[in-house]
Amino acid sequence: MAKQNATPYMISRRNFLKGAGILGLGVFGVASLSGCAPDSSSATGGSDSGKTVSVLTYNGNPPYCSLDKEGNLVGYDVDVLKAVDERLDDYSFDIDSMDFTAMITACESGSAELVSCQLVPSEERKEKFIFCEEPFCLSPMVFAVRDPNIKTLDDMAGLTTLSNPINYEYGMIENYNEKYPDKAIELKTTSDITMADAFKMVASGQVDSYSCYDGSFDAVNDEAGTGLYKTNVVLCESTYFMFNKEQTELRDAVDKVLKEMKGDGSLGKLAEQDLGVDVFTAYADVLSDNELMND
């Protein structure tokens, strides 16, 4: 097994970008963070034959990818990668971890063929990378609101919501408004604001709502002391494995396996194991970015 480093990065990439960090960086942009030195934490997949594929993830984003007490890479992304590796005869995954920005750079340069960190296929990224057709995860989203009676997208009609135009979520809501003009949500633009400050703007009445990941709501609401409520899960972001542009054959092979795993239920079982819920069945009826962004 490859050498593993027992010292994790302490800040979750998702929490950095969506919570404590500046939203102007954008969840889909390559954040302009200072690149740290590569981490040597790694985990081999199940295959021991075939072409070796350099796979990178970020080890500070639990429950998706992080280090356990022994310094082993663990989490949903890692388990899915290992399961895909088990089913691929022509490839063998060498899974390692790196600072988020360095990971993206490595994939662009070709020193890594595949990266995974709950990534969305933004227009900016699609210019530089290729993605599977099949998402390997769904991220449930809610709106932070002052009124506990606001639960659905229908309830959100005519209300204002705060979002940065460079964020993926802004595009989702914009497309939602185009698709459902009679239920449109008024977008109020912002930049350079933390998630906690966005919650405070909702609490003060400057704006009616703010979209966020369901799993982030409680921590930020407590941190900001805003006493807000959250809607039901009303939107889902689909997240994908991302590849160097030259790796079309690898991408197609991984995509085929993911579709098999989705069909036989094994992908949902891994989600239930690592995330506490089979996201593919639990959110099957929730409006997704695939429906909004690909029409």
Score class of each variant (00 low, 15 high):
residue 263 G to D: 14
residue 86 E to C: 08
residue 34 S to L: 11
residue 132 C to A: 13
residue 290 N to M: 14
residue 205 G to M: 07
residue 202 V to M: 01
residue 249 E to A: 15
residue 79 D to K: 12
residue 120 V to Y: 01
residue 155 D to A: 08
residue 55 V to I: 06
residue 46 G to N: 09
residue 201 M to T: 03
residue 219 A to D: 11
residue 287 L to W: 09
residue 36 C to Y: 13
residue 166 I to N: 11
residue 48 D to V: 14
residue 273 Q to W: 02
residue 170 Y to S: 01
residue 207 V to A: 04
residue 223 E to W: 06
residue 290 N to C: 09
residue 234 V to S: 03
residue 267 L to H: 06
residue 159 L to T: 09
residue 125 R to M: 10
residue 113 E to P: 02
residue 242 M to C: 09
residue 288 S to L: 07
residue 25 L to K: 03
residue 153 L to T: 03
residue 151 K to I: 05
residue 205 G to I: 06
residue 217 F to K: 03
residue 12 S to K: 04
residue 45 G to P: 04
residue 133 E to R: 15
residue 101 T to V: 10
residue 95 I to W: 00
residue 176 Y to F: 15
residue 123 E to R: 13
residue 161 T to A: 11
residue 40 S to D: 09
residue 31 A to R: 11
residue 36 C to E: 12
residue 97 S to G: 03
residue 167 N to E: 08
residue 219 A to K: 14
residue 16 F to S: 03
residue 117 C to L: 08
residue 104 I to V: 12
residue 211 S to K: 08
residue 236 C to E: 07
residue 207 V to N: 01
residue 16 F to D: 06
residue 257 V to M: 06
residue 61 N to A: 08
residue 121 P to W: 02
residue 39 D to E: 10
residue 197 D to V: 00
residue 286 V to N: 10
residue 223 E to I: 06
residue 272 E to R: 13
residue 163 S to R: 11
residue 112 A to I: 06
residue 259 K to F: 11
residue 148 P to A: 13
residue 189 T to I: 10
residue 80 V to K: 00
residue 236 C to R: 02
residue 95 I to E: 00
residue 103 M to E: 07
residue 35 G to C: 08
residue 118 Q to E: 14
residue 132 C to W: 03
residue 14 R to F: 11
residue 174 E to P: 03
residue 253 A to G: 07
residue 26 G to D: 05
residue 123 E to Y: 09
residue 260 E to K: 13
residue 262 K to R: 15
residue 121 P to E: 04
residue 59 N to Y: 02
residue 274 D to H: 15
residue 53 V to S: 03
residue 26 G to C: 08
residue 135 P to D: 03
residue 150 I to E: 04
residue 30 V to A: 11
residue 206 Q to H: 10
residue 260 E to M: 09
residue 188 K to N: 04
residue 44 T to V: 13
residue 206 Q to Y: 09
residue 234 V to Q: 04
residue 155 D to Y: 05
residue 245 K to E: 12
residue 284 A to S: 15
residue 164 N to I: 05
residue 166 I to M: 11
residue 164 N to E: 13
residue 226 T to F: 10
residue 177 N to C: 09
residue 221 N to G: 04
residue 25 L to M: 15
residue 24 G to F: 04
residue 105 T to G: 11
residue 191 S to Y: 07
residue 149 N to F: 02
residue 173 I to G: 00
residue 234 V to K: 04
residue 246 E to L: 06
residue 261 M to N: 04
residue 66 S to F: 09
residue 43 A to Y: 02
residue 229 Y to C: 10
